[in-house]
Design a protein around this nucleic acid. Structure first.
Lengths: 213, 213
DNA sequence: ATGGATGAGTGAACGGCCGTTAGTTAACGG
DNA sequence: CCGTTAACTAACGGCCGTTCACTCATCCAT
């Protein structure tokens, strides 16, 4: 009996038990499960560099090496996870926007949806927008969020609800302000923050020039 | 001759050479040198978790264990480094403020000084304001920067240069917007950013209500 | 002057987690 | 029954934080 160095397990798999292997054509299912686990851990760690392949594997109860079946290396896994995360976020924000009637309410809906998401997934927000992965990798997919916000601003201008101007520049100011607010709240959650809605409304009225409420 | 496992060295000490030990009463000198090296590395790494004690020691050509003479553990070193960093930054910003005549120019001077500092020490800015160390540690000393900005806003109001109002709230909006702008520039330096000055001026006029230029 | 205390700094080692490679095993489809 | 798919075990090499015992040089008291 050799009790020394249990290979890698100790897994927190709830253990209804014995994750059987996937059926023949369904190898991709593990891939999704790995990404999901990576996102859970990234949200907890709030730092891409702190995420270890082995921790992801432990979390879902597989061997660390099984990750390499689906991802070339650690960075590829993180990238894939963030891409899915971003895709889901953009979808949610677009849905939130669609729920409102006029362009102003839609822009406001977008912004608040992002703020709420950041509050609920602060770790992921940090990894996405503040991690050093931004230095090492382009993450071009993030561009689409900015573009959609600019488009929403443009629609306010086109409807005469905001003073006509450079929608690109206005959108940049708005995004900067909102990101700053969200970032500060996420990074120092213990300070006594006023309601995000009020602050966003001030940004919308003062920076975009749009009438709110 | 045993060439295997050279203890920890390989040090990039420029090597004018042979760092002699400090004289009797001057043990504190190494402490300062350690902090300086930590700040250099933190600025490069832009992530407090990525900073290793051993890397700091290597950087100045001392044994890793010597760090423990001056700091209880790795976290204590990082904390001390950030405290010095913050202290120096506050000093620089106060100096920049003092160079301007009226309250508006002073507030603007403060803000731009911070922006320039963040641009030149983007790694440190990230560690200070975005690293996960914020979660694990209070870093109460950071409060003073916010307080001084609020005071500068209050002076604008007192001088009748900004519409009277809740200086605290206005300051928060301004800081959020500026932090957001700086943070985005730091995290995605490759995007085509417009001049920071222009954006700051828009924030000052639109959010604080102060006349600029 | 001299010898013990003390300050400044080492060297070696322990235990741990990590990324990644290489070779292996078990189930399934044809 | 055989090849392919899905997954595994074992291991290498590396960096890390931290502990412990140790070496010098210097200073002070005798």
């Amino acid at each position: 009996m050799d009790m020394s160095s249990p290979p890698d397990h100790g897994a927190p798999r709830g253990n209804g038990g014995a994750r059987g292997r996937n059926p023949r054509g369904q190898g991709e299912r593990l891939r999704e499960e790995i990404i999901t686990a990576a996102l859970v851990l990234l949200d907890e760690l709030a730092d891409d560099q702190a995420l270890s392949l082995r921790a992801v594997a432990r979390h879902i109860g597989i061997a660390a090496t099984s990750v390499y079946i689906h991802f070339a290396d650690r960075d590829a896994l993180v990238l894939a996870a963030l891409e899915r995360c971003h895709h889901d976020l953009v979808r949610d924000i677009d849905q939130a926007e669609a729920a409102s009637p006029d362009p102003v309410a839609r822009l406001r809906g977008r912004t608040l949806c992002l703020g709420r998401w950041a509050h609920e997934h602060s770790g992921l927000y940090k990894v996405m927008h503040e991690s050093t992965l931004n230095r090492r990798n382009a993450m071009a997919f993030k561009q689409s969020l900015a573009e959609r916000t600019t488009a929403a601003v443009q629609r306010c201008m086109d409807a005469g609800l905001a003073p006509a101007g450079d929608a690109e520049a206005v959108s940049l100011d708005l995004r900067a302000a909102v990101h700053g607010s969200v970032s500060m709240r996420v990074n120092q959650p213990d300070l006594p923050w006023p309601p995000l809605e009020d602050q966003v409304d001030r940004f919308l009225t003062k920076l975009v020039g749009v009438p709110v409420s």
